[in-house]
Design a protein around this nucleic acid. Structure first.
Length: 349
DNA sequence: TCAATGGGCGCG
DNA sequence: AAAGCGCGCCCATTGA
């Protein structure tokens, strides 16, 4: 019996059909993940036909079977098994679980599909209550600007106000009035690459631009924000001189891998972003919002409140999440949904 | 039968 | 010069 969950068997079957697999896992096995299967099935990232080749029916079937199983059994039935007698789920929040200091949550509550509301729709507020979510806006870019003291980025955030779009600002800064939405996408990728330490190849793959274009954009990015590289070098040196341990602004000790020292930028950003959310949560507690809080999700607080109070509660959450970090404004935006979590993202209930 | 590991996939 | 970061949970496989 061939199983879709067995990469070995899927790889064997695909090569037997004449497909050529090249990507390898860390241990040397042939990869059969989504990035490999989607092109074989002639599908793009959104599962739309590309029209570049005849779809391989096995690749297509494996993709659909995996998704159906994950959503149906792992999420839906998995949740049912975790409910208490009142139908509630009780995740455990570990406030400092990650190596970066990030929080984590059990029961997969941080990992529910967000692009499609079908799973999140199953999580409900009390009767007559609605879901509220409040997000920190572009928190990692703001934190990077604050920690690395990036002059022109800070200027943007300071002048930009609440709806400020850092990536559009960067595109305009570098390309002037000629900046296009495509430029914004490319520089967004470049900024992402800075925060995560991504290479040219990775950014190109994610943005769909050519490597040459990305290389050019990253170089321009470095000229516009030279402080980022300087901070990265400084943090790496600091870690080297301290037994490969980076000490964050609040004194948290973050061990780094020798062969991935560049990750210190990401560690610094994730850690500081976590502290911003933590500070906000302290403010929420002293502002009487504890009874509405449901789940922290890295840059967001999920809450629920009686319908009639939702607007006030949402405003209060925004206020608690608004602060200044080394002169960089930290801004939040709350959204009021319906009774289900899924309704927060445009779904009808 | 059980624990550990690798591969995979969802999120921010 | 080059480098995606961090989780939790699932299944299949492997080795006691």
């Amino acid at each position: 019996m061939t199983k879709v969950g067995s990469g070995t068997q899927v790889a064997e079957a695909l090569t037997g059909m004449g497909e050529t697999l090249t990507d390898r896992t860390d241990s040397g096995a042939l990869k059969t993940d989504k990035a490999v299967l989607l092109p074989l099935a002639d599908l793009d990232r959104d599962w739309q036909r590309i029209g570049a080749r005849d779809p391989n029916p096995l690749a297509d079937a494996v993709l659909r079977a995996k998704r159906a199983k994950k959503w149906g059994e792992d999420y839906a039935q998995g949740f049912m098994a975790k409910l208490d007698t009142a139908g509630r789920i009780h995740p455990v929040i570990s406030p400092l679980a990650a190596r970066t200091g990030r929080m984590s949550a059990t029961d997969g509550l941080h990992q529910l599909p967000s692009s499609d509301y079908v799973v999140r729709r199953s999580i409900l507020a009390e009767p007559e209550h609605v879901m509220v979510s409040s997000d920190l806006q572009a928190i990692e870019m703001r934190v990077l600007a604050a920690l690395a003291d990036v002059k022109r980025m800070k200027e943007g955030f300071l002048r930009g106000g609440e709806k400020f779009d850092i990536h559009a600002y960067t595109a305009r800064l570098i390309k002037g009035d000629a900046a296009t939405p495509r430029d914004r996408k490319v520089f967004k990728g470049a900024g992402f690459g800075k925060v995560y330490g991504g290479g040219i190849q990775t950014i190109a793959r994610q943005t769909g631009a050519t490597e040459a274009e990305i290389a050019h954009a990253v170089a321009a990015y470095d000229r516009a924000f030279p402080e980022i590289k300087r901070a990265s070098t400084r943090w790496q040196r600091q870690a080297f001189q301290n037994d490969m341990v980076f000490v964050s602004a609040v004194g948290r000790r973050l061990p780094l891998d020798r062969d991935r020292i560049y990750a210190v930028v990401n560690y610094a950003c994730q850690s500081a972003a976590r502290d911003v959310l933590g500070q906000a949560m302290i403010e929420m507690e002293s502002s009487g919002l504890l009874e509405y809080m449901r789940l922290p999700i890295h840059d967001e607080i999920l809450a629920s409140a009686p319908k009639g109070d939702a607007a006030d509660v949402a405003r209060e959450f925004e206020r608690c999440m608004t602060m200044s970090l080394y002169g960089v404004p930290i801004v939040a935006e709350a959204e009021i949904g319906g009774r289900s979590w899924g309704s927060l993202y445009g779904a009808s209930e």
